[in-house]
């Protein structure tokens, strides 16, 4: 039975719905669709790539200061979210990847290689048909971007243990009894695997929990998260942090 059949609406609700149902279609401005078909939209073009590279530089420089690399790390959440924002749309546009990637930015500790990932997919690793689109790999930080037809997720991996005490207190939480940090506004979750700090941008705390819970393997949440992260990273040839 259709659930709708069980729902009753008051008369005033039907009146409001009827009014809204009478709203007409709206024609797009002349030329808009042709512009989209023939030109790169303004908001996802080279400007965005430039911002993305700037964010990569910023993170690279931050890494170069020696803030991480020891036993404890504090993920630069705001920078990682900004990095996700400016790279997710761009990296999920295959044509942009083809035309812009395959080069190295910076040098030394701040080197961040940008490589195009072949078309292989591990959609089963994330919900809603996500496929891996790209990776930004540095010496101390890896970003993997997964995208579906309607959304994108970035997974940042840093070696070390998360220093949760240095993250904003209001975001501290636990997932299956394991310390974590989350921000529902930016949809950011910081979790700890055996030897890596993992920052996930684009999934809520409950979604992260659901994804990890789907792994049929023994062990704690951190063990299973590590296994999942290992699945993600192993395909790219990185060390399996689990």
């Amino acid at each position: 039975m259709n659930v709708d059949e069980n729902l009753t609406e008051e008369a005033w609700e039907a009146d409001v719905a009827s009014l809204l149902g009478g709203l007409p279609f709206v024609d797009p401005p002349p030329g808009l669709i042709d512009d989209v078909l023939t030109h790169r939209p303004l908001h996802s073009g080279r400007v965005v790539l430039g911002l993305g590279l700037a964010a990569v530089f910023a993170i690279g420089a931050w890494l170069g200061t020696g803030n991480i690399g020891g036993d404890f790390v504090v993920p630069p959440v705001a920078d990682l979210v900004a990095q996700h924002d400016v790279t997710a749309d761009e990296a999920s546009d295959v044509e942009v990847l083809n035309s812009n990637l395959g080069f190295t930015v910076g040098s030394g500790d701040s080197a961040v290689e940008i490589e195009q990932v072949p078309g292989s997919s591990d959609a089963a690793s994330l919900p809603d048909g996500f496929e891996r689109r790209a990776t930004f790999a540095g010496s101390e930080l890896e970003q993997q971007i997964y995208a579906s037809s309607s959304s994108a997720v970035s997974i940042f991996i840093q070696p070390g243990a998360v220093d949760f005490d240095d993250l904003p207190a209001e975001g501290r939480t636990t997932i299956e009894g394991v310390a974590a940090w989350s921000d529902p506004v930016t949809m950011t979750v910081v979790v700890q695997t055996t030897d890596s700090a993992v920052t996930i941008v684009g999934l809520s705390e409950s979604e992260v929990s659901t994804v990890v819970a789907s792994i049929e393997a023994p062990g704690t949440f951190a063990d299973r998260l590590g296994r999942r992260v290992g699945e993600w990273t192993a395909q790219l040839g990185f060390a399996d942090p689990s």
Binding site: V26, L32, V36, H43, S44, D93, A147, S149, S150
Partner: peptide, 25 residues
Amino acid sequence: AYRLCGNHHDAQDLVQEVLLRVRRG
């Protein structure tokens, strides 16, 4: 897009983004 955004400027931006996502999807 227009019903959600309420103005043509944002609706146009949203349509551009939607069409790109459609192409990928």
